[in-house]
Simulated scan of single mutants.
Amino acid sequence: MAGRPTIKDVAREAGVSATTVDRALNGRSIVREDTLRKIADAAHRIGYHGKGIFQSRLEKPLPEVRLGFILLKKTQEFYKNFEREIHHAIAERRDVRATADIRFSSSQSPQEFAELLASLGRTCDAVACTAVNDQRLNQVVQDLRDRNVIVISILNDFAQGIRHSYLGLNNMKIGRLAAWMITRTVHDPGKLAVFVGGNRWHGHDLREVGFRSLVRETGRGFTVLDTLVNLETRQVTYEATLDLLHRHPDLKGLYVAGGGMEGAIAALREVHDRPKVALVVNEVTAESRNALIDGYVVMAISTPLPELCRKLVDLMVRSTNGEEDSASGQHFLEPKIVLPELL
């Protein structure tokens, strides 16, 4: 090699681009540790004059960040997948040494959410939580904010104006999407029904509002019955759906805006030997997938968990570094639409 070794020579020896070597040399952005090690070894072999810089970057310890997460029912397939994707997203990070403390709320009690938030806030730099809307949580979030602990609401936007950011779906649009599918699947207008988890889930309220607004806009004569509360449980949804079908045998469509869809699927299968009610649910699980295949579900609106978790961990890390300072920020993800023909 004639003359003094250059960045291009290091790149060729390491099997990477000159741009990557330049980033590693100047610290303009994060370079994976294994790539940085290849560059440092190559620089040492060819006698590059800046080899000490690469080595020093390898020896510099990564910053540590403690991340807390509060999810719902641990036994549900959706939240099992959520937990798995959080661990995957953290494992992908090469710029920090992150640890995850994942807790599960066993109920929809504001007190339990408040206690979990307070507990994680004592040990974590940032906490992401899906929780109900309640004044007791607002106070806990304010206390954590005063102590510079980042709180991010996920899926349901609670503590608005206090929490750092919201990350999830645009719930108003999700409700409109559900109504759009049902009103176009059902050819003869009739009665429609909506299940929400409870009055404390602001996201479910928004889905209901979106659903009703689009139904009105169609002007096709559909009637939306009084909203039903299912506490996001299978059994309550099952019993309420059976009662709904008994009282309204002409029911045309049903939207389960939160959890408990398994109960609605079971009731429809029990009453109708073939699909007669257009059912829209959230998330794809083993049961909803089978119902899609059999025609008992016409559409599932799915949260893109891998994308959500990557963006969530990134938002939490950047927020602890002071890179994200908006207290009213909302970050919406595009839902994944699953239809029978796509399975």
Rank of each mutant, 00 (worst) to 15 (best):
V313L: 12
E83P: 07
Q111T: 14
L228Y: 13
G221C: 00
L169C: 05
Q160G: 13
C309R: 00
S109Y: 09
R45K: 15
E33A: 07
V186C: 06
V10R: 10
V151A: 07
A179L: 13
K336H: 03
E270K: 06
A257D: 06
V271K: 07
L25A: 10
F69Y: 11
E323V: 11
A24H: 05
E341I: 14
N133A: 04
P275E: 03
E85N: 10
H44D: 10
R4C: 10
L169F: 04
N138A: 04
P249C: 10
H246N: 08
G203W: 09
N321C: 08
E287D: 11
P61H: 07
I154A: 08
V229W: 14
I265F: 02
K51H: 13
L117Y: 05
Q330T: 14
K173A: 15
G253I: 04
D226I: 05
L72G: 07
T233Y: 11
L155Y: 00
D157G: 06
R318I: 13
G68R: 02
L177F: 01
F113C: 13
A300P: 03
V284S: 04
I7W: 09
V256T: 08
L333K: 08
F332Q: 12
H202Y: 15
I53H: 09
I30Q: 14
E262I: 02
Y166N: 08
F211Y: 07
N230Q: 09
A40M: 06
T20N: 08
G203K: 11
L169M: 06
E92I: 03
G3Y: 15
L312H: 01
F104P: 01
G68P: 01
A114H: 05
V10L: 12
S107V: 12
N26R: 15
I46A: 03
V298C: 08
D9G: 11
R93K: 15
I46D: 06
E307W: 00
V317R: 04
G263I: 09
D226E: 15
G50Q: 13
E270D: 10
R274V: 13
V21H: 07
V196T: 15
G322I: 09
R184V: 01
D41W: 00
L67G: 01
S29Q: 14
L71E: 00
G175W: 02
R103L: 05
L268P: 00
